[in-house]
Structure formats: structure tokens, C-alpha cells
């Protein structure tokens, strides 16, 4: 299954298919929730980071972009040939290449991979995992994740009790 995801990832990236990359990121995140497989998490993070880079012109008009594309494809092809290489090729080398590109040409403090961790952790939380379980899955920082979650509509979808009961109980407890 991982090999299939990486094949789809390579195809989407080469075709400049940002939407496809986002879908791959989301689907692999869902698989990661099930499997807690760190390599599936890596596929999700890398897909998301590449999706963001494809949607931002300042990356692909930057010097070094064509070399970066060649490196990405090379790492992905290695993983397709041998899925055992995913941890090294994606988890170390491709993430380093993305971080380097982001450091040179990115517009935000805080790198792209960290933002991917938060985004996909938020996805896992939206599926029902606890915040800490979601943070642990993707390696997202809790402070970043809580702040991000607070700005989404995730909590609007949960069943709610009457606040009166909760409030009355709080008054009893808090004195």
C-alpha cells in the first residue's frame, strides 16, 4: 500500500497536480490513524508539503527549483523500487531537501514540515483521536496544534450537553 501511495505521489507531483497531492496527503493520514505506521505519516507529511509548494509560485520561480524537482523524483523512485527506503529517502533526505528549499524561499517562520504535522494532526483529531494522540501521531507540537484546532470548526460538530448542568456542577466544585 505504501508503494502505491508513493507512485501516486510521484505522478501527481510530476503533473503539477496540487489537488491530487492534497488528496494523497489526506488519504495517507487516514491510513496512518489506522496503522500508526510512521512511514505512512511521512508520506502524508511530504505530500502535504509538496502540495503547498506547488500552490505557491515563489517556490517554483525560485532558483534551484528544477534541481529540487529532480531530487524529489529521485527520492520517490527509490522508495518505489524499494519501500524499505521510505524512512531514509522520505524521512531524512526529502524532508531535508524540502526544509532547505523552504528556508531559502519560504515566507513564514516555522517550516513547512512542521505546518504539515499540525495540519495532519488536526485531521486525525477531526477523525476522533484525542489531541495528544493526534499530536503524537504526526509529531506536531501541542501548542501549535491547540491554537490551530481552536480556529477550525471541528468542535462545532461534537454533541453538547446543557451548559446549565455543567455550570452548576462547576460552582459546587470550585467553591
Amino acid at each position: 500500500m505504501k508503494k502505491e501511495f508513493v507512485e501516486k505521489l510521484k505522478k501527481a507531483f510530476l503533473h503539477g497536480d496540487a489537488r491530487g497531492l492534497k488528496e494523497i496527503s489526506n488519504e495517507s493520514a487516514e491510513q496512518a490513524v489506522l496503522s500508526r505506521d510512521k512511514e505512512m505519516v511521512l508520506i502524508s507529511l511530504v505530500s502535504y508539503a509538496l502540495y503547498k509548494m506547488l500552490t505557491k509560485p515563489h517556490y517554483h520561480y525560485a532558483p534551484g527549483w528544477s534541481d529540487f524537482v529532480k531530487e524529489v523524483v529521485s527520492h520517490l523512485e527509490l522508495c518505489i523500487k524499494d519501500p524499505r527506503a521510505i524512512q531514509e529517502a522520505l524521512g531524512k533526505r526529502l524532508i531535508e531537501d524540502i526544509a532547505k528549499m523552504d528556508k531559502l524561499h519560504g515566507r513564514f517562520m516555522g517550516d513547512l514540515i512542521e505546518r504539515a504535522r499540525v495540519k495532519q494532526a488536526s485531521r486525525a483529531y477531526a477523525m476522533g483521536l484525542s489531541l495528544d494522540s493526534a499530536a503524537e501521531l504526526t509529531g506536531a507540537d501541542r501548542f501549535r496544534l491547540y491554537a490551530y484546532i481552536g480556529r477550525t470548526r471541528i468542535h462545532e460538530e461534537i454533541p453538547a450537553r446543557s451548559v446549565r448542568d455543567r455550570y452548576e456542577r462547576a460552582k459546587e466544585v470550585l467553591g
Binding site: L131, L145, Y146, A147, I149, G150, R151, H155, E156, I158, A160, S162, V163, R164
Partner: peptide, 14 residues
Amino acid sequence: KYSGCAITKGEIKE
């Protein structure tokens, strides 16, 4: 709420 507390807008209104 915006800091991450799981409270809905409806509950805040309440």
C-alpha cells in the same frame, strides 16, 4: 475557544 477548548458557539450563547 480559539485557544482550543472544545466548546461550541451554541454553548457560548447559552
